[in-house]
Amino acid sequence: MATAHREDTDHGEDNFILEIHRIKERIQIQFVELRDCLSVRENTLIEELENILARYCTYKMEVEKITERRKRLKYQKRLYRNDEVNKLGKLVEKAGVINYTDQWNNCVKVFDSTAKYLFKFGDSKGENKMSLPTGLTICGNRILISQSSHCIMNYQLDGKFISKVGKDGNGNLEFNYPQGITIDELNRDVYICDYNNNRIQILSENLHYKSQFGKDILYNPCDIKLNRNNIFILGQSNPCLHIFNKDLVLLHRLVRHVEY
């Protein structure tokens, strides 16, 4: 009887060991399956991340190209604007003398009627320094110059500084990058293109504020000319010519669309 009991015990231990091995094998199989599943998911995730990174790099390159293109276009438009503004009247003739705004050299150059250079003026430093002059007109015995530091400079014909008016802002007698400037020969009013404020400010001959117009009509006005009956205003952005009468009523709007 003792021998039979031992055989039963040994048989039970063998079954227990076999069961342990089977459980171990199942665990190993499940572990391998889980590892393979995780590997597949990891590879899929890595591929997705690589695709996202590739799309981001492509997007970044496109943004850089667009940014560089915009910089080039902005520079070209600035050159074009300067050329057009000069054609529209940057060279102002007065008593056989021509005054020319040299924008990038921050000065005004004076030539005689034969284009012989005479002299230049414009303080290079200090509170009254000339900074990117953009517009010029003769007002009696004075030269009025608009410049990028948001003000109007007032000089004698010999280039001696008199005064300046205006500051940065959008109120009366405040400017945001003033450009084209001209004078009405009939009443001596001064008309100034207030570029980034999208309007025209009108000052008296003594540079006191009188009125303004063009808000909600003009967009980046850069030059202005007057004749006896009309006011002609050139807009830079998508070049547009506005024609007003002297009562400041819009008569015509001529648009030239530019494709980039």
Rank of each mutant, 00 (worst) to 15 (best):
L34Y: 03
E19N: 12
I20Q: 15
R22G: 00
V40A: 10
A54E: 03
L53H: 12
E50D: 11
Y59W: 10
F31A: 15
T44V: 11
L38S: 02
L49T: 09
K60A: 06
L49V: 09
V32I: 15
V32G: 04
E48M: 06
I52M: 06
L38T: 02
Y56N: 01
E48V: 06
E47M: 05
I23Q: 14
R35Q: 10
R26I: 09
L18Y: 08
I27Y: 03
V32T: 13
I29H: 04
K60F: 00
R35K: 09
I20Y: 13
E48Q: 11
E50Y: 00
Y56H: 08
L45F: 03
Y56M: 03
K60Y: 00
R35D: 05
L45E: 04
V32F: 03
E33R: 06
V40T: 13
L49G: 14
A54Y: 08
K60I: 00
C37F: 12
T58D: 14
T44K: 15
R55M: 03
K60Q: 03
E19R: 12
I29K: 03
S39V: 02
L38F: 04
D36G: 01
L53P: 02
E42R: 15
C37I: 07
L34S: 09
L18P: 05
T58P: 00
I29G: 05
T44F: 04
N51Q: 07
I46H: 15
R55G: 01
K24C: 03
N43A: 00
I46Q: 12
R22W: 04
L45P: 01
N43Y: 02
V40D: 11
E33D: 07
R22F: 05
L45K: 15
I29P: 02
Y59P: 01
L53M: 07
V40F: 10
N51H: 14
V40Y: 12
E19P: 05
N51G: 14
E19L: 08
I27P: 00
K24E: 04
I20S: 13
F16Y: 11
K60D: 10
I17W: 04
C57V: 12
R41I: 06
H21R: 15
D36M: 01
A54S: 03
C37V: 05
L45N: 08
Y59L: 06
C57A: 13
V32H: 10
N51T: 06
Y56C: 06
N43S: 02
R35H: 10
R35V: 07
R41G: 01
E33P: 01
R55P: 00
L49I: 11
A54M: 01
C57R: 15
L38C: 01
R26N: 14
E25G: 03
E25T: 13
I23H: 12
Y59M: 10
S39Q: 03
I27D: 00
T58Q: 13
I20V: 12
L18Q: 15
E47D: 07
I27L: 05
E48L: 11
S39F: 02
E33I: 07
I20A: 14
V32W: 08
N51C: 11
I52W: 09
N51V: 02
R22T: 10
